[in-house]
Amino acid sequence: MEFLSYLISGISLGSVYAIIALGYTMVYGIAKMLNFAHGDVIMVGGYISLLSMTSLGLPWWLAVILAMVVCTVLGVVIEGLAYKPLRAAPSLAVLITAIGVSYFLQNAALLLWGASPKAYTPIIAGSVKLFEGQLSISYVSMLTVFMCIVIMIALTLFTGKTRMGKAMRACSEDKSAAQLMGINVNRTISMTFAIGSALAAIAGVLLCSSYTSLMPTTGSMPGIKAFTAAVFGGIGSIPGALLGGVLLGIIESLAKAYISTQLANSIVFAVLIITLLVRPAGLLGKYVPEKV
């Protein structure tokens, strides 16, 4: 029973990682860059939702929508101001810029909202008790897993069936060829950032709801872990992000429970390193050999 409860909390944590990892993986797939500021967009989503519920007194669902809108705009603005001018620059320049944006967002949050952690009231309180109270699953956990599944299905349909989604896949394969089809590559990249950032807002709300506290660095560690999850599952792959996220969550939760709380993070990253040694493209990553 104890094991089951750790497993469930792992799946729930992993679902948050998966939602964040989807943002990483989509942006990487299309813009071929690692947006290290992604984790901090999560934190902004957390603050916006918290402030709209506490200061503005909005209902939780409206707070979530507002956080999504703000993060979407933020994501598109970051892309347009910081990354777009570097489209032709070496990838190291873009990477350093992304790290810069990450610190900028953390420090802006520090200025605006202060360093001390704020208490975050979960958007849905309570839990279900099973097996005569031996197993308790919070509503937030259930909502997290449910949202993760809904987002996965929606994104799979979007990239597989819609014109815009297919254009994104075309851009991720070959930008010049996509341009020769009449696809506006810059707009497609903006759109990808918009979707990734909206997902980050949802992840922020879910993350803060399960940890019930929020500060300017809240997004960093989950951001890095989600990045790990994306690489673990195969960066650029949507199902890979889901698989990587959930597995990472389960490993972390079980490692905390049965091995050591202090070592949990080391174990998570050790699993990543071992996986990449065996499968360099990640679990579901496609290794595409160059066709001569």
């Binding site: 254009a167 070959d174 089809m181 696809i183 496609k286």
Partner: peptide, 18 residues
């Protein structure tokens, strides 16, 4: 420069993007 990971029909649909 076809889109190698997309299906034949999807490639043609991309041609019709405009």
């Amino acid at each position: 420069r076809i889109f190698l990971q997309m299906s034949v029909q999807e490639n043609l649909e991309m041609g019709a993007y405009t």
